[in-house]
Amino acid sequence: MIPIFPDEVLHKNPQFQAVFQDLKTNKLNPDASSKLSNQSIKESQDVDKRLTVIREDLARTKIIRQRLIHTLNDLPADLREVIDLYLSSQNSGAVLRKDDEAFFLEGLPLICKSLNKILLEDATDLANMCTSDINPDPNPFTLPSTISARLDTLDLHRQSLHQIRCQSLQRSLQLAELNRNLISSTIKLVEQTKHGLTARAQKTQAKHLSLVSDSLDGKVKIMYFEALDRLYDQDTVNALAFYKEHLEDTKVRLKKQMRKAEGELEEYEGFGEGVKRDVVKYAQILEDIEQTKADIRRLGGDA
C-alpha cells in the first residue's frame, strides 16, 4: 500500500509533494502496484493466464505422483513394480522400456480407479473443511465453486483491510498531531509556570515578604530590648544587687549552722550506747517527776 504522509509534511516540502502526487495518481495503484497501459495490461493478463495453466498442470502432476504412492497397496505386485519404475524414470529423466510402458498403459484403468478413490476422499476432506453456514453441504463436486467464492470473499476482505489500514494510519496521524499539540502546550505551561512572568512575580513577592519578615523580626527585638531597659533601670538593678548580697550572706550563715549541727550530731553519735541509756533513763525520770507533780496536785486538791 502507498504510505500516507501528513499534510503538514507535504506542505513544507512542495517538490516532494509533487513527486508523491504524481506517483499516487499516475504511477501506482492504491495497493502500491504499478499502473500499466492497456497493451501492458493485456500482455500481463496473458502471462498470468499461461502461468496459471502451467501452475495448475504442475500441481496436478505433483498431486498425482504423491497419491500414486498411496495406491500401491491396492494394486497387483507387477503393476506396483511398473509404477515404481515409472516414478523413478520421472525423477531421473530415464525412459521406460516399451513392454513396461505397454503394461503400464494396460493397467491405467485400475490405477485410475484406485487413484480416483483416493482423490475423492481428499476432496471430501477438503469439502468438510470448507463447510460453513453459507455452504453446509460438504459436497466434493462443488468444491471448485466453493473455493472460488472463498477467494472472492478473501479479495473483498483484503480490499476492506486496505481501507481500514488507511483509516488507521489517518487516525494515527491525527493522534500524533494531538500529542504534539499537547506536548507543546505542556511545555508552554511549564515555561510560564517556572520561568514566565507569573513565576517571576511570585518569586519577587516571596522575596519581598521575606524582607518584610526580617524587618518585623528586627523591630520586635528592638522592642524587647527597650522593654528590658525600661524594666531594669539603675535603681532596680542596685536593689537587686543588694538583695543578691543579702541572699548570699544568708546562704553562708545557713551553711555554717548546718555544719555546726552536723558536728554536734557526730559528737552525740560518738558516745554510743551509754548515752542512749542515759537518755532513756532521763526520759523515765522526767516522766516520774511529772507523775509525782500530778499526784501532789491531786492530793492538794483533796485537802
Rank of each mutant, 00 (worst) to 15 (best):
S184V: 03
L240T: 03
F5Q: 11
Q202L: 04
E101C: 03
L110G: 10
S210Q: 03
A123I: 07
Q17E: 15
I63G: 06
L173G: 10
L265P: 02
D74H: 10
L58I: 06
Y243D: 10
N181S: 09
P136W: 00
E264R: 11
A241K: 13
E266R: 12
H11R: 12
L231W: 03
G301W: 08
Y224R: 11
L87Q: 08
S210G: 00
Q45I: 02
S148C: 08
T193I: 01
L156T: 05
N116G: 13
L105S: 03
T186V: 11
D78Y: 01
K117D: 11
K113M: 10
Q39W: 04
D122I: 09
K24Y: 14
D137Q: 14
L120N: 11
D7R: 12
V212H: 03
G196S: 05
L72Y: 07
K256N: 09
L156I: 01
Q174L: 11
A32D: 14
N29W: 10
L115H: 13
L79S: 02
D288H: 12
T250P: 05
H157F: 07
E245S: 06
A239V: 00
A127G: 07
T186N: 15
K49N: 09
G272S: 09
L209G: 00
I69H: 14
T61N: 15
I289S: 14
K256E: 06
P14Q: 04
I2A: 00
L72H: 08
Q15Y: 09
Q202D: 06
A123T: 07
V279F: 01
A261M: 08
D155H: 05
V279I: 00
N238Y: 04
T186E: 14
L68W: 06
S210Y: 04
R253M: 00
T61V: 09
M258K: 14
R297K: 07
T198F: 02
F104G: 05
F242W: 04
A199H: 04
H246L: 01
D133N: 13
L126R: 14
V82M: 10
Q163D: 05
L10H: 07
S213P: 04
Y224A: 03
S168D: 14
L189R: 13
L85F: 11
S145A: 12
N128T: 04
T236L: 11
S145W: 10
L169N: 14
K221W: 07
K244G: 06
A241R: 11
P138L: 10
L96P: 00
A206Q: 01
Y243N: 05
L115F: 04
L79D: 00
T146C: 12
T292M: 05
L85V: 03
G301R: 15
E81R: 09
F225W: 07
N238H: 02
I83K: 06
L120T: 13
H11K: 15
D125T: 09
E269W: 08
K256Y: 02
V9T: 13
P136N: 09
K251I: 03
I222F: 02
D302A: 12
K49H: 05
G274I: 02
Q45H: 12
C130I: 10
E81W: 03
E290I: 04
T71E: 15
Q291N: 10
H208I: 02
S88T: 09
E43L: 13
E101S: 05
P140Y: 08
T146K: 15
E226W: 04
R65W: 03
K27A: 06
F271H: 14
I64V: 04
T25G: 08
L216Y: 08
L151H: 05
P109Y: 10
I164K: 15
T131F: 00
Q21A: 15
